[in-house]
Structure formats: structure tokens, C-alpha cells
Design a protein around this nucleic acid. Structure first.
Lengths: 154, 154
DNA sequence: TTTTCACTGGGCAATCTGTCCAGTGATAGG
DNA sequence: CCTATCACTGGACAGATTGCCCAGTGAAAA
């Protein structure tokens, strides 16, 4: 899927996102056009979805993170999805196999505020039950580089 | 924490990450120095952690995502953390309150490969039990803009 | 053998960046 | 009421980068 040069380019971009394509090509030891072409391909491939700013919720006043497992009333999936999509504190939502039916990541201004968020999340007809786990520590923040390295070495 | 101009700047950067600070200042209707200063402040504040490329695991050969809840043997937290940090397929790891002790996000090349990943994750002395939920759909991909809007309007 | 493809190395104009500066208006402290 | 501070404006400058073009080369595929 991606070769070693792609992997090194992704790693470079992840470590120093501010460098331009010219500087990247210098570091990779290839011509600018090559780096350019690789980056274009990675983007049109969908390997790189974008370069959006990585915003820290804690820094904008939402230091509390939690994961909620939701159990959904049969046939209510679609309405629950759109309900949750309308709650800003829901940062992501997955439908899953297993005990619950959905798993979502929440943030809140405080532990007390988390109660308000949860009430808003579960205060919806299609949701039968919710079980919440508050995040205390984040020993491994969302990362992709190790996986990219592995993928580019196969 | 952040005002309306910060919010609009973040939104702009999230929607069109490739625009430079000059174009951003034009769209926001402020002087370039102002946009520059705001961006610098957001970065030194830690509001913007970086601009790393958003890589899609599915596009590099890991289309299966799962969440695993782990139960840890007392006092083994540190060693489990470093064990999991060494597994490339572990994209993030949180310690939580609630039934489990840790929650991690995993990816794999296939459902069969997920078994290998899980074996590697739980094949470690400090881990007592693991319960895995495979992601089927992702109705709300990781997002931050709605929260930024809310935060900038208080 | 011929075609295709990725890469090299170069050049060009247009644009953007980093870095200054002086002037202005609002706010907070005295 | 006066003054210092701060954020913002609007402008300037040289240097770097970008988007785009080109011809030539080597390897792999047809």
C-alpha cells in the first residue's frame, strides 16, 4: 500500500508539520517533484485525510474525557446517531459489536459538567442504557507513526 | 479561553488546512499580523498541538478497528503501559475508572489479524482479562469544530 | 525492442513568509 | 482625568517557497 519513501515522508510530516515540500524533499534526499508527487498521491489515495489542526480539548476548557457505552433500542440506530451528532461534546461515535451497541468519546468542563453531558446524551428515547468510564490518564495519545512504519516495511 | 476570532481561525484551518496565514487573515477580515499573532498564541497555549497529517489506517492496510477494555493486575500498571506502547496496532491507550482499568484502540489488517493483535496485547502477565468490541461503523469521526464553536461563544 | 513510468535537475513568475515599523483605539491603573 | 499597556492596522522589505513547465535517464512492463 505504501512504500518506504511514503513512510518516511509521513513520518517527517508528523514530526515537523510546518516544513514545506521543498525542505521535506531535501531531508528525504529526493527531487522536489518526487516528494510533491508522493504527497499528492497520498492525499488522493486517502492515506492522508488532511492536515487539520490538532486541537487539545483540555486547552479550550474541556479537561475531562470519558467513554460511554450505549445500548440502543432496536431500530433506533439512525435517530440516535443524529441525536449524538448534534451534541458538541461527543467527539466521536462508533457502532460496535459486543455488549453495548455504540461507543462514544465525550468531553466535559468538569466532572460535574460531565453529568450534564451524559444526561444530554442519554436523555433520548432510543437509548436504553449507558455505562461511562472516565479517563484518568492517557499514557498513549492517539498516534499513527508506529503503524505507518510497520506498514511501510512489508 | 478562546474568543470568537480564535474560533473562526480554528474552523478555517480545520476546513482548509492548506491555506496560509495570509489567506486566512483575508478571510477573517483582519490584518495579517493579527492572524499571525493569534495562531502563534494558540500554538504556545497548547490549544493547537500540531498540524500532523491525519492518516487513515484503513488506507494503509488496517481496515479493522476495535476497542479493548483491559483489566490489570494490581501494581502492574506501568509495565502494561510500556508493553502496549510497544505495539504499533495500539493507536491510543487510556486508563479509566469503571469496570475495566484501561481502554485501548486497536487496528488490524482483518478480523483474523485482529486475533493476532489481541493475543499480542493480552499476552502479557499484568493483564488479567480483556473484552473487545469491534467497530462496525463510525457515524461521527473524530471531530473538534462543534466543540470549538461552543467554546468560543461563551 | 518499444512503451510507459517514476525520478532527476533545472528554470520561471507569482506568492507567501518572517520581520520590521509607526500610528490608532480601547482598557486598566494611578 | 491622565498615562501606560496592549492588540490591531496597514505597509514595507528581502528571502524562501510554491505551482508549473521542460528534457533527459533508467528500469520495468508489454
Amino acid at each position: 500500500m505504501i512504500d518506504h519513501l511514503d513512510g518516511r515522508l509521513l513520518e517527517l510530516l508528523a514530526l515537523e508539520p510546518r516544513i514545506g515540500i521543498l525542505e521535506a524533499s531535501r531531508r528525504l534526499g529526493v527531487a522536489r517533484g518526487t516528494a510533491q508527487a508522493r504527497l499528492d498521491r497520498l492525499q488522493s489515495n486517502g492515506v492522508i485525510r488532511g492536515f487539520g489542526p490538532d486541537v487539545d480539548p483540555a486547552a479550550i476548557g474541556y479537561p475531562v474525557t470519558a467513554f460511554a457505552t450505549l445500548e440502543i433500542k432496536q431500530g433506533q440506530g439512525a435517530s440516535v446517531r443524529s441525536h449524538l451528532a448534534g451534541v458538541p461534546e461527543v467527539l466521536e461515535l462508533h457502532t460496535t459489536t459486543g455488549h453495548g451497541d455504540m461507543l462514544c468519546r465525550l468531553v466535559a468542563r468538569s466532572n460535574a459538567d460531565l453529568q450534564r453531558v451524559i444526561d444530554r446524551v442519554v436523555g433520548f428515547d432510543g437509548i436504553v442504557r449507558a455505562s461511562t468510564a472516565i479517563v484518568m490518564e492517557n499514557p498513549v495519545p492517539l498516534r499513527i507513526i508506529p503503524l505507518v512504519k510497520q506498514a511501510s516495511e512489508d
